[in-house]
Design a protein around this nucleic acid. Sequence first.
DNA 1: TTGCTAATTGGCAATATAGCCAACAAGCCA
DNA 2: TGGCTTGTTGGCTATATTGCCAATTAGCAA
Lengths: 106, 106
Amino acid sequence: MDARTQARLEARTRILKALAHPTRLLIVEELGRGERCVADLTGMVGSDMSTVSKHLSILKGVGLLADEKRGTQVFYRLAAPCALNFFSCLESVMEANLQAQILLVK
Amino acid sequence: MDARTQARLEARTRILKALAHPTRLLIVEELGRGERCVADLTGMVGSDMSTVSKHLSILKGVGLLADEKRGTQVFYRLAAPCALNFFSCLESVMEANLQAQILLVK
DNA sequence: TTGCTAATTGGCAATATAGCCAACAAGCCA
DNA sequence: TGGCTTGTTGGCTATATTGCCAATTAGCAA
């Protein structure tokens, strides 16, 4: 495998890894409905604010989120709304898994 | 957050984590062109066959791949071709990141 | 300035992941 | 059967990720 292919795969991997966490998926889903400040998201997630801030930093770091400081608050929003498209595929895989389970029981 | 939402997020996360590895992305991409046996994929990836086998097991475990034994060989194929749809979104995020970099330099 | 809120960062311990080698299992054929 | 090929699994170490607490920064207002 050549270096170019390797680099491309690693770049894709970074984005997928950023998404591959329950809290970060929840954040992306919530930001799909509009921008939110860190305190809002912290309340929704139920973790320490420092933890939520790090999750946001990870998502921003790969270009999925953008942030804007307004006063003492920082508002985050989706920079790549196409991330939401992932979900329908994930659901279809989950649905297929469920069907397979059902077939096993029958 | 209720237990149902939690479970749904964790299920999605399992699928994303399965995809979030350069070797596994390469495997998915290759299987997008047709079924392959483990030896084929091992040759392409360049890791130990045991390593590739474990990657395949992870992808199969979340329902992204299906396998079929024929003689001494095991052939893997995509069970969820929609996984390939992810890539165009990943590319668009990468492209946007690149544009942002370019703007910084200009 | 002092105090208060919002958010980020550093540090650390617990947990999860990755990949190699060695051992094992399964199918085929001489 | 014995030997060969194909693939999987166990065990291990190295590395990465996670999440909390504590410390710090930044903005605003009394």
